[in-house]
């Protein structure tokens, strides 16, 4: 099983990069941890290495910067994000049940939709 990744924050910056950060209980040394983007329709994958900071005890801190301008998905509208550690991949998501889901409007503005609406 992949080490459980807990999302702390996902940030979009003016330079067009996406910064994903969180924690995991442990990360196996056999294969570097990273994040995988998968095109919803094409299944095309691209992997980005994560920075892992291991402290003396407790969970490890994990972060990854994804340059969005470089994503190779010209025909896609949606891309899913996975955390990869060892042989497994784990869908990245919020750890608690969200009541309001963020989304970009058709004019490119930030709105939230009520879950289930």
């Amino acid at each position: 099983m992949a080490a459980g990744f807990k999302l702390s924050r996902v940030s979009l910056r003016a330079d067009g990069s996406l910064d994903v950060s969180g924690t995991a209980a442990a990360v196996p040394d056999s294969r570097p941890a990273g994040f995988l983007l998968v095109g919803r329709q094409s299944g095309q994958e691209r992997r980005y290495p994560a920075a892992v900071v291991t402290g003396p005890a407790g969970p490890v801190e994990i972060s990854c910067v994804i340059p969005l301008a470089d994503l190779p998905y010209p025909a896609e509208d949606l891309v899913d994000l996975y955390f990869v550690s060892g042989p497994d991949r784990l869908r990245v998501g919020w750890q608690q049940v969200l009541q309001w889901l963020p989304y970009p409007t058709k004019f490119g503005n930030l709105s939230f939709k009520r879950k289930g609406a």
Partner: peptide, 27 residues
């Protein structure tokens, strides 16, 4: 001011699926 998303547009925007998973949407 209406708040949008930083950076160039259109581009990939963080998007929460109905199950609370993180995806990117091109908008």
């Amino acid at each position: 001011f209406r708040i949008g998303f930083p950076g160039p547009a259109p581009s990939w925007r963080p998007y929460a699926t109905i199950h609370g998973s993180l995806s990117l949407k091109h908008a």
